[in-house]
Simulated scan of single mutants.
Amino acid sequence: MLKKSKRKLVLLIVLILSVNALAACSNNQSSSENVLRIGVVGPESGGSAQLGQGQRRAIELAISEINENKLAGEWTLEAFFEDDEGNPTKSSSATNKLIQESKTHVVIAAINSSATLADMVVTERAGIPQITPGSTGASITEQGNEWIFRTAANDAFQADALIKYAKEELGLTKLATFTSADDYGQSGAKLLKNAIEKYGLELVDAPTYNNGDKDFKPQLISIKEKGAQAIFLWGLYTEAALISNQVQQLGIDVQLFGASGMASAKLIELGGDAAQGLILTQTFLPDADIPKVKEFVEKYKEKYNESPIPHGAQAYDTVYIIADAVRKANSSNPKDLRDALRKTEGLELVTGNPAFNEQGDDIGKRLLITEIRGNEFKLIKAVENN
């Protein structure tokens, strides 16, 4: 009799444990179903590491705020990061890893335009929405890819704004372009040329350079001999700083211009006196007198003890756009997310009021023409999207 009682007790304990285990599994499954997994690809090492590191910090800040305040409704956001070193091959491999191994529902990638172009092949094939907060190459949104979105100001907008400013505000007529030989630089070169022709100016020289080059003097001497009044750079901050220094060393009297790809504190640090007065476009200034900007900068400084960079601000906004999309779609299904992203509206964010056109470009982006003065980028003019 005693043995039977013991057996019944053991069976009862097993039954209770089994019920609890099933309940735990059910709860875990329910929790898992309400987690949106975001893959993030960017250069956290290599020549544009500051951009990738700034992107990561801003994304982590946004996710912590959104989850804490339940701004994605019943959904919790989780990020998975991969370093692509700015290399297209590594970037596409990282994107594939995030989709296949981390099972991400949406991808934020990448910063370098050539890397984004490589990633797009992977995300389109997998049917996963991809948002790039840093890549500005015009060709990214010109390929009819229904899965790509961009929260950076595209290069066509930037090139037009810079050339128009050079003509109307500075009265310059003879211009040179000096661009990196990669996808980003050559896209910029083409758009600058188109804008120069549009505004009836003269393009006197258009040399290129390779990323990693150290000596730019032969191209600069050619530009000087052809009588250029300004040089429009299209590349990243490392080469832009070196070029600025060599322009100064050669005594070339020109106005230097650049695009958002080089908008980093590193440009000011590496360029020194030679970078002073360089005019460039970007979408964010940490000292802007805008409530959303002030709030973001204060929180970012409190967490990281440094000011955010434009790429970080755009990445921060990107996470909020994704949170809004999953809240409205109430689904992690990639197609539902893509459709919700297309309908983005009514958000007041750090870099503007996002809205995507048919190509996936954010047409609510605020573009700023700025100048390096001292250790800061100072606002010259704000330009509305055409």
Rank of each mutant, 00 (worst) to 15 (best):
S331P: 04
Q143D: 11
C25N: 07
D119K: 01
K174I: 05
H105G: 07
G374D: 12
A313K: 10
K381I: 10
E269L: 06
A24I: 14
L170W: 04
P43D: 09
N96I: 00
F157H: 04
K164P: 01
S222V: 13
K217R: 15
K167F: 11
V41L: 05
Q143V: 12
T151F: 05
W234L: 12
P133V: 10
A355G: 01
K70A: 05
I108W: 02
N333C: 09
A329S: 14
I140P: 02
V106Q: 02
L9A: 14
I268N: 08
K90F: 12
I148D: 04
N210W: 05
L11S: 09
S102W: 05
V319M: 08
D253T: 06
I16F: 13
E85N: 13
I243K: 03
L9K: 08
G277W: 08
V297H: 10
L270Q: 14
Q29P: 01
L15Y: 05
G235W: 07
Q158V: 10
E65P: 00
T179V: 15
S332Y: 09
V14A: 15
I268R: 02
L349G: 02
E306W: 10
L233N: 07
L117R: 07
L36I: 14
A21N: 05
G312Y: 06
G134A: 14
T141D: 05
I322R: 01
Y304R: 03
L280E: 09
S260I: 13
F257N: 03
I140G: 01
A315H: 04
S180R: 10
R342W: 01
A265K: 13
T141Q: 02
G86I: 06
S135G: 11
N353E: 13
T89G: 14
Y300T: 06
E295G: 02
L15K: 00
K381Q: 14
N211Y: 09
K299N: 15
Q229C: 11
G360E: 06
L51A: 14
I243A: 09
A195S: 15
I16L: 15
S91H: 01
K97Y: 13
K303D: 08
E384Q: 13
